[in-house]
Nucleic acid binder design. Structure first.
Lengths: 202, 202
DNA sequence: GTCTATAGCCCGATAGAC
DNA sequence: GTCTATCGGGCTATAGAC
């Protein structure tokens, strides 16, 4: 990196770092106030990045929302996958999902709220519903296998089995984040996994 | 809970009718586009009631939203109560809830979407979470009784039992209304009731 | 009570200096 | 790339005729 003396101008901040700041700050605001309830000036203030810089990286507000969506689904999916290495049985896979959700509710509620609540209200068109994204597709595949192996009850198809299991965990997450459920998710995660499994097991 | 019992003077046009038109039209729009995504001109067009008339009955947009909220929770609660006359066992009460949700998803999706999605996004402050409203409180009381009677498994408290049962039904409703679940709720309502009960039974 | 018209505000997006 | 300043547009809420 021997450089010519003149152009050593140190960049104030790496551009990518600004992009991330904008994404994280906007996600927080979107979760708290909804897409339409957040203005660009709000984002400028919360992120410390100026209007001009924001528009140099994102075509418009809607594009920013889509980037946040993709960013968040990826983040969740990678966490799920990294916890699943070596897990084999269907029941164990589902339990890993429940544990992940419970941990996220307590440790990264913004991410979790986004996953649960943001696609509704349809302010931004063209966002894939969370339940159609990779992590949930992945769970559905395991449920299908469970059905074939006979460990999941045959009264239902894999779709209904999936929603029945995840419904227990996700509803708990919703109520916890709405402040209705006072127990921490860590305390009840085993009960949630057990209830969910009882809902669908053969 | 119920409407005002004031005697109605004969008028050329009933103002109450206009109020209802505004409430129903706005609720539909709010569900479709979110609170902030709906402007007063949008409501004027959809309801056929003029700006002036709207503001003569509702202090501002936020007050309108609160009236819609109360109106909708009442509507749901009355439907639930009317279906429950004579129902005794905890399991039966829960099944009535599941059937009601399934019917509403197919017959009045606007009402059901409102119940499921609208409090999130927090655009309007001071709305009680749906799960803290009368109908859900009512279910919780039955679960508490179920716990005392020993028909609900003791691994959990009544709050967790309630969310585990309702989670199955409500998650199905969400996925159905997001277009992810292709089977009609009528087809799967018995499976949902069975799964939910299996999740929590002793 | 109900209408139309509009005041006043704030937003999203852009222009142009640096 | 990044900044500040600003434009046009659409919003909420009100004013004033009927």
């Amino acid at each position: 990196m021997t450089s010519k003396g003149i152009s050593v101008k140190k960049r104030t901040i790496n551009p990518q770092e600004k992009i991330n700041k904008v994404i994280l700050a906007s996600r927080k605001l979107f979760v708290e106030k909804g897409y339409c309830g957040v203005s660009i000036p709000d984002i400028v203030q919360a992120s410390g990045v100026s209007t001009g810089a924001i528009y140099s990286h994102f075509k418009d507000k809607e594009t920013l929302a889509k980037r946040i969506h993709a960013y968040t689904v990826d983040e969740f999916n990678e966490m799920l996958q990294s916890r699943l290495t070596g897990t084999e049985s269907v029941q164990e896979v589902l339990k890993v999902f429940t544990y992940l959700v419970c941990d996220l509710v307590e440790e990264n509620p913004i991410l979790m709220k986004y996953m649960l609540f943001m696609q509704h209200g349809g302010a931004v068109a063209g966002l894939s519903p969370i339940c159609e994204t990779d992590p949930f597709r992945f769970l559905q595949q395991h449920l299908r296998r469970g059905l074939e192996e006979g460990v999941v009850h045959r009264r239902q198809d894999f779709m209904v089995a999936g929603l029945s299991y995840t419904g227990v965990t996700l509803r708990a997450a919703e109520l916890r984040m709405d402040g209705v459920l006072t127990e921490s998710m860590t305390e009840i995660r085993d009960v949630l996994a057990e209830n969910g499994w009882n809902a669908i097991k053969a």
